[in-house]
Design a protein around this nucleic acid. Sequence first.
DNA 1: CAGCTGACAGATTTCAACATCTGTCAGCTG
DNA 2: CAGCTGACAGATGTTGAAATCTGTCAGCTG
Lengths: 199, 199
Amino acid sequence: MSPTTETLTAERILEATEEVLRRHGPAKATVVDVARALGVSHGSVYRHFRTKAALRAAVTKRWLDRMFETLDVITADESRAPETRLRDWLAALFEAKRRKAGDDPELFATYMVLTRESSEVVDEHLADLTGQLTRIIEAGVASGDFAALDPRTVAVAVFHATGRFHDPGYSRLWERPGAREDFTALVDLLLRGLRAPAA
Amino acid sequence: MSPTTETLTAERILEATEEVLRRHGPAKATVVDVARALGVSHGSVYRHFRTKAALRAAVTKRWLDRMFETLDVITADESRAPETRLRDWLAALFEAKRRKAGDDPELFATYMVLTRESSEVVDEHLADLTGQLTRIIEAGVASGDFAALDPRTVAVAVFHATGRFHDPGYSRLWERPGAREDFTALVDLLLRGLRAPAA
DNA sequence: CAGCTGACAGATTTCAACATCTGTCAGCTG
DNA sequence: CAGCTGACAGATGTTGAAATCTGTCAGCTG
């Protein structure tokens, strides 16, 4: 590694910040640490990000965007039945959050800090996710698989209903024994509610 | 008031503790404060409650039991349709928690402390509530209004699904503009899922 | 002269001495 | 002698001074 040879870009700063966060956690990670990791003065970091909060938000945004991409693959696969897509989408969301919480506890903690600050980045992420849900439900309404309810309203309701399995505040419950069964039971009930009355 | 004339009972200690908690909040309230309020030494309080945590738990239990009683009236009213009872029960739960969070912020904060400690008192409370839900759903299954699903499983699913509207972790969202509509949309969806397919 | 540096003011965090609290218990009191 | 007291040890919380951090900016450098 030759950190001082390349020009300092926002991208390189984000990379370094993620590393520092992973090592120290959101409570201990400082802008000075990030600058040290890059071999520059902390003033240079402030040239690319106006505040520490903005830097933290940018790291989290990247991290959430990667999750969004994963789920978008399921959302966009119009070859499969809406019901299957919805099931898979919810399961993938649960699984993704669960893995993040386990594999990257410090970055996950950063995300939780942002959630509590009710940051714009998290609000956007949640809007993006309900947007994907809305698309799947629209497809189901169009195909006649789902009842003719307002897709956006139902999407929000489904998202709220499954909060226990994607909201970071519940992360400590995700590794408990019955979690998977509870999740399935809940999704089954929601799908019963979504399905159109017998053809 | 003549606090030193009556004998010291668990009940009187709980009363005083509730008052101290209301005034100082869970972070500042001490056993010494409670003893002072009663005009006794703190050693006497330990005669009735083995630890501070036990005292806090007992106060919260009383508080939660009152909520349980309120909801039990709805649960037990077998003259009304299961669907109506379920709607009213969920609305009453939401309303009760919302009022507690607003009117008694310090006692509510105490309850949140216990929730985070995942205390036995809270676990019991949650079990009691899902028990009530189970009874209502059993009634609905028996009357043919609800589909023949396992009542306990469905009760747990409904309880999890509505967490956003009764879990203290979400209390800061309960006074937001759209909360009531979001709640109604969610309950509507759940009831669609519960209803038996057309007679 | 664009981009970086490093000194700086004010905000925040750390740390250690000090104060208060929790939980126990021997002995006092009614 | 049942029930209460108050002194006590160890745990926890408070406080304020010192250290560190955030965010700015005048000036250096390639």
